[in-house]
Design a protein around this nucleic acid. Structure first.
Lengths: 149, 149
DNA sequence: CTAAAAACTTGCAAAATGCAATTATAAGTT
DNA sequence: AACTTATAATTGCATTTTGCAAGTTTTTAG
């Protein structure tokens, strides 16, 4: 288990399993992808479809349909950009905000439950380390830019 | 960004993007799922189908088909268990081993590239922290056991 | 020796995906 | 202004992935 990749593989698999079970709010059943989408729309300020799709590394046509189904669920809304009418701006509906906040809370509850098996010092060290790691990934040329092919 | 969930969300998204682009070996194009499958078969000692499917949190019927396609690609083989003929034992073919090792190497190269943007101390701290975190998840009742519903 | 359970597979229908083509708007060129 | 090119988003269609229900084969229990 000295292999860095192994550590990350196990971790992401377990986090993935968590996600699978963690996205049901108010009878609203969300897939992992949908929760990512809500998260990202919430985080950015009135992003365009392209922007979010690229951030998530999702094909724009697939993304278009994902947005459509979230609109049907009344969680997301599309607003035409006044300065460029080709562009639609995404935002959460009030219900979407509630659902997103609830998911966030559930995830944090789960994480805290896991952290209860670690010391406070270990937890803080972990969080600080991940923050650094995320920054390092941001600097990397190989990551986060959905390089096609 | 003080929110633990945010840190993990960003991290897993970026690692997920990495995975998307990282699984092409010798003309063999593998999906993320398939690489997880190879990884897990490699890691366990002659596991049964059920075992791997459960570990990965995949429905057994879906898993059965995933194995079939990896067998067609000549990366995985199924061996009937001599003591219980209902059970099939999974293992990698020589080619499967090569491919799996190559993916492992590619992933580690990527990780090292990211680590080059961190100090050696920070990297070691990160890896130690993740190890602790994985252990903590293992102790958690809410995780890693694909609880249905 | 029959019934129940377990491991795995297949049928089928639903959902997700991505490329190609289309619509609508914007920007650049002559 | 007229025309071409580029960009944002959607739709058609075919492929792949998924999971439940049902089936086969083998093992275990009563």
């Amino acid at each position: 288990m000295e292999n860095p990749r192994e550590l990350f593989q196990i971790m992401t698999r377990r986090l993935g399993l968590l996600n699978k079970t963690c996205c049901s709010v108010d009878g609203c059943d969300l897939s992992v992808n949908q929760s990512h989408l809500l998260y990202e729309i919430d985080r950015s300020h009135n992003p365009s479809m392209q922007q979010v799709a690229e951030t998530l590394g999702t094909d724009i046509t697939t993304f278009s349909r994902q947005v459509q189904s979230l609109m049907k669920m009344n969680l997301v809304q599309k607003t035409p950009d006044p300065t460029d009418r080709r562009i639609y701006t995404l935002s959460l509906t009030p219900e979407g905000s509630r659902v997103t906040a609830t998911i966030d809370q559930q995830m944090n509850e789960f994480l805290n439950e896991v952290f209860s098996n670690m010391s406070e010092f270990e937890t803080e060290t972990l969080l600080r380390s991940i923050k650094l790691f995320n920054e390092a990934m941001g600097k990397s040329s190989k990551c986060c830019k959905p390089v096609t092919g």
